[in-house]
């Protein structure tokens, strides 16, 4: 009994400690962020690493998710004689939920884990110390460009994911199952609202990007300088990042769409 209480206490103290370190990390990172915009070449390089290199997985996944939505939507809607609504259904599910969430989950696994591992290895090989010794601030030179790159690329990837998803839905519904092309688009156009659906979906995506950037970089900065340390930190980025995205999605959905 006492032992359990002690464990609970230790857990609480640890949690508070990490929260404190996270706060300090963010506090010191914040003033370094404008530097990322000033040094465009660093930002471009990171945008390539986290963005362009994630393109194939995002595009493939978007296409398949859209095709599945088209197929499932058609099977349900055809019973009510309203299979033209399959376009609306595909577009709305992608814009409001699946686009931002699935793209963010894929992004955590592809880019977030890579960022954590990279920074963790830089720490364990003393590269960050070396930068400090050369009077170059790693916050400005390493962290800031990566943070901004995540913040910029995830919303862009989400847009691409959604567009390809809708195209996938169209391929299945119109190309394969014979839904009328005109009805598919006009129904969608009539029911999808720019502010309500598109803008809200993109706000979600930006929020997820912030969360992933913070988790991935913080875990990188906390990595123990051993090989287990790096693998442990990478796993934590994926777990915390994914769960965080899903939790945050619920909160945002409750705030936006009720």
């Amino acid at each position: 009994m006492l032992k359990a209480l002690q464990q609970l206490g230790a857990w609480g103290i640890n949690l508070t400690r990490s929260a404190g370190r996270l706060g300090l990390f963010l506090l010191s990172l914040l003033p370094a962020l404008p530097y990322a915009i000033w040094r465009v070449s660093l930002l471009v390089k990171q945008t390539f690493n986290v963005g362009t290199l994630s393109l194939p997985i995002i595009m493939t996944a978007g296409l398949f998710v859209g095709m599945v939505l088209g197929l499932q939507g058609y099977n349900v809607l055809v019973d009510y004689n309203s299979e033209e609504a399959v376009g609306t259904m595909t577009a709305l599910s992608l814009l409001r939920e699946l686009g931002p969430v699935v793209a963010a989950l894929l992004f955590v696994g592809r880019a977030g884990s890579a960022l954590t591992a990279e920074i963790g290895l830089m720490r364990s090989t003393e590269q960050l110390s070396a930068l400090e010794m050369m009077a170059v601030d790693p916050l400005k030179f390493i962290y800031a460009p990566r943070f901004m790159a995540v913040l910029i690329t995830l919303p862009l990837l989400t847009l691409i994911f959604i567009a390809l998803g809708i195209w996938g839905g169209w391929l299945v519904a119109v190309g394969w199952l014979g839904v009328d092309d005109g009805a598919f688009w006009s129904q969608m156009h009539a029911h999808v609202d720019w502010r309500e659906d598109v803008v809200n979906g993109m706000i979600k995506s930006v929020a997820f990007a912030l969360l992933i950037a913070v988790v991935a970089l913080f875990q990188g900065s906390e990595t123990a300088p051993t090989s287990e340390g790096v693998s442990y930190a990478t796993t934590r980025t994926v777990v915390h990042g994914s769960l965080g995205v899903l939790g945050l999605d619920f909160i945002l959905t409750a705030l936006m769409f009720n």
Partner: peptide
Amino acid sequence: LRQRMGMLFQSGALLTDLNVFDNVAFP
């Protein structure tokens, strides 16, 4: 002040994404 110091790390601590020339040119 650190610009007046140089440090040679045990592992070398070269920036792994740069070549030899760019590493030396970096500072």
